[in-house]
């Protein structure tokens, strides 16, 4: 699939109806999602024939994209019932898309669900601006769930910290920034003064060492 085609497919995905501040429910825009997914598919070919788990799937943008790009089985996890309802209706817009949704707490999923594993983990985690460390909790969970690779978006300002945690604490075989993207964040919440704000975001790829 071409990038343009993927982008236009993903543009049809419904956003959050009322995003929740505490969960940092920023929508993954079609632009950034399609770039992320396209890179994973075209450079690494890590959807076809591989299982995928999307941590904090929100409205299902990345899960749907991964299934469209050939993953035979995608699980989207989210704690929020309202987000999952939107995700469900988004998945339902396509016929027979192999996406399952599960309501659970991503922060503790590694300990709570030791059997839950996938070849490829994708996520657009909270950036940890509302609850400090939320981004790192997701990353830790990703290292427990993935048996192969992790693709994730993080604020560029946290790059050195992420590199250190991935290598030292989480024992990543590799941790690499694949691309610098601009996250065009529309003013979703009342405390946002500007109409929209560009945030610099890194697309990371981590390789997990299998036990």
């Amino acid at each position: 699939m071409k990038l343009k085609e993927l982008h236009s497919l993903l543009q049809g995905i419904e956003p959050f109806q009322s995003p929740k501040v505490a969960l940092e429910q920023y929508p993954t825009g079609a632009e950034i999602a399609s770039r992320m997914l396209y890179t994973i598919e075209s450079v690494y070919n890590e959807f076809a024939g591989r299982t995928v788990i999307d941590l904090g799937c929100g409205t299902g943008m990345l899960s749907i994209g991964a299934a469209m790009l050939g993953s035979p089985h995608v699980i989207g996890l989210d704690i929020d019932e309202d987000a999952l309802e939107v995700a469900h209706s988004n998945v339902d817009d396509y016929e027979d898309l192999p996406v399952d949704l599960v309501q659970c707490d991503v922060n503790t999923v590694g300990e709570a669900q030791p059997g839950l594993q996938a070849d490829t983990v994708i996520m657009n985690p909270p950036f940890g601006t509302r609850r400090k460390g939320a981004d790192m909790d997701f990353l830790r969970a990703a290292f427990q769930v993935s048996t192969g690779t992790i693709y994730s978006l993080h604020k560029a300002s946290t790059r050195q910290h992420i590199q250190r945690v991935a290598k030292k604490e989480l024992g990543a075989a590799s941790a690499k920034v694949l691309a610098e993207l601009r996250y065009d964040l529309p003013a979703s919440y009342v405390f946002h003064k500007q109409k929209s704000k560009d945030i610099e975001v890194d697309l990371w790829r981590f390789e997990v060492v299998c036990a």
């Binding site: 999952l84 469900h88 599960v102």
Partner: peptide
């Protein structure tokens, strides 16, 4: 419900 298990 609607195919989604709630494990909370």
């Amino acid at each position: 419900m609607k195919g989604i298990p709630n494990l909370l």
